[in-house]
Amino acid sequence: MPTVSMTVNGKTVSRDVEARTLLVQFLREHLNLTGTHVGCDTSQCGACVVHVDGRSVKSCTMLAAQANGASVTTIEGLAQGDKLHPMQEAFREHHALQCGFCTPGMIMSAIDLVKRNPNPSEETIRHELEGNICRCTGYHNIVKAVKAAAANM
């Protein structure tokens, strides 16, 4: 079994895992970081989005071994102590979540989109969230939250 090492939310971790282990399985099953979710098996829903070396990726479509040596940030690693990330704050403030299942991936994608588009229009936000499916909110408040967070990031 290959040994996979990476930095997750600032901590170095190392595990021996089967080669077929996906990054999302590594996070959820080996590190018990269950904030990253799995909502589909065709790489479309985005519930599993995390940051690998600063870029948002679908952790269900990447082997853990591919992330060997990388720096990974999950939803659990966003807040600094008790201080929430502005995107987390904005999601709460603007009621951008209901059941909460898509929320971690949505927040991780939204942070990446604001990094690449510091002052995004509604159209840009909607287009950039193409890889994340939410069944509850109709996206209306997610768009509002991302816009508001962009102003505070």
Binding site: T34, G35, T36, T74, L84, F91, L97, G100
Partner: peptide, 18 residues
């Protein structure tokens, strides 16, 4: 503002598969 959001936006929701 929703009381339940804190756990969902921080990855601390607890769903059955968790």
């Amino acid at each position: 503002r929703r009381k339940e959001d804190r756990r969902f936006i921080t990855g601390n929701g607890r769903y059955t598969d968790d």
